[in-house]
Simulated assay, not measured.
Amino acid sequence: MSTFTTRTASPLGELTLACSDRGLCGVWFEGQRHGPEAQLVQGWQSAPDHPLLQATAAQLSDYFAGRRTVFDLPLDLSRGTAFQQSVWQGLLAIAAGTHHSYGQLAARLNKPLAVRAVGAAVGRNPVSIIVPCHRVLGSTGQLTGYAGGLERKRALLQLEGHPLS
């Protein structure tokens, strides 16, 4: 399966975008933990004119300008395990301006004892912002773990009007 990629600017730093023939499969901040593995990137094709990558960049621009909180893009989350994919799908149900704790997310996925595994899967989300892992907070509402950095997590939540304590 071919993977196409480009880079785009954002107010929180440069983003790498990637898509397959199935859909968007990656949005990573520069320097983000758990980014794409180097051996994968070597086979990717630079495609700044790819229609899906252009649509992604446009929707992200609208998001950062406060004109969008929901994305309308086909996703390809197939590079994760079945469990990771279920967690990433669960993230899509968390609306902008709201949050879930890791425990709440685990309970919603009918895996109430798998809080740590859910947290690990959230941290490995390959489609930052669009699959909103930044909307998962600690059990008391505190900012915890974000592969793109806690300052970016705070900025994304504030952009969405989340009432941070």
Rank of each mutant, 00 (worst) to 15 (best):
T8P: 05
T8K: 04
A9R: 15
S10K: 09
P11R: 00
L12V: 15
L12G: 14
E14V: 05
L15M: 07
L15H: 05
T16S: 13
T16Y: 12
A18D: 13
A18T: 14
C19F: 05
C19K: 07
C19S: 07
S20P: 08
S20G: 02
S20D: 03
D21M: 05
R22C: 08
G23K: 11
G23L: 07
L24H: 06
C25P: 11
W28D: 15
F29I: 08
E30V: 13
R33W: 11
H34D: 13
G35Y: 08
G35H: 09
E37I: 12
A38S: 06
L40Q: 08
V41L: 05
V41D: 02
Q42E: 15
G43P: 11
W44M: 13
W44V: 14
Q45H: 14
S46A: 14
D49R: 14
D49T: 13
H50K: 00
H50W: 01
H50M: 02
P51E: 00
P51F: 00
P51C: 00
L52P: 15
L52S: 13
A55H: 01
A55Q: 10
T56W: 03
T56C: 08
A57M: 09
A58K: 11
L60S: 15
L60W: 15
S61A: 15
D62M: 08
Y63W: 06
Y63V: 04
F64K: 01
F64V: 04
F64T: 06
A65V: 14
G66H: 02
R67S: 10
R67Q: 15
R67W: 09
R68I: 15
R68M: 15
T69R: 10
T69P: 07
V70F: 11
F71V: 02
D72V: 06
P74Q: 13
L75P: 05
D76T: 02
D76W: 02
R79P: 01
T81W: 00
A82L: 03
A82M: 00
F83L: 10
F83Q: 05
Q84P: 04
Q85L: 07
Q85G: 07
Q85M: 12
Q85A: 10
Q85P: 11
S86R: 14
S86W: 06
W88S: 07
Q89H: 14
G90P: 09
L91V: 02
L91H: 00
L91Q: 04
L92S: 13
A93R: 15
I94W: 01
A96V: 09
A96I: 09
H99P: 05
H99Y: 11
H100G: 01
H100R: 03
H100P: 01
H100A: 01
Y102R: 05
Y102C: 01
Y102M: 03
Y102F: 10
Q104P: 12
A106V: 03
A107I: 08
L109M: 10
N110G: 12
L113M: 14
A114H: 12
A114E: 15
A114N: 13
V115C: 04
R116G: 10
G119V: 05
G119K: 01
G119S: 04
A120G: 07
A121M: 01
A121G: 01
V122H: 06
G123I: 08
G123M: 12
G123F: 11
N125A: 10
N125I: 05
N125D: 13
N125H: 04
P126G: 05
P126W: 02
P126A: 01
P126S: 04
V127H: 12
V127M: 11
V127E: 14
I129M: 09
I129C: 09
I130Y: 02
V131A: 00
P132Y: 04
R135S: 04
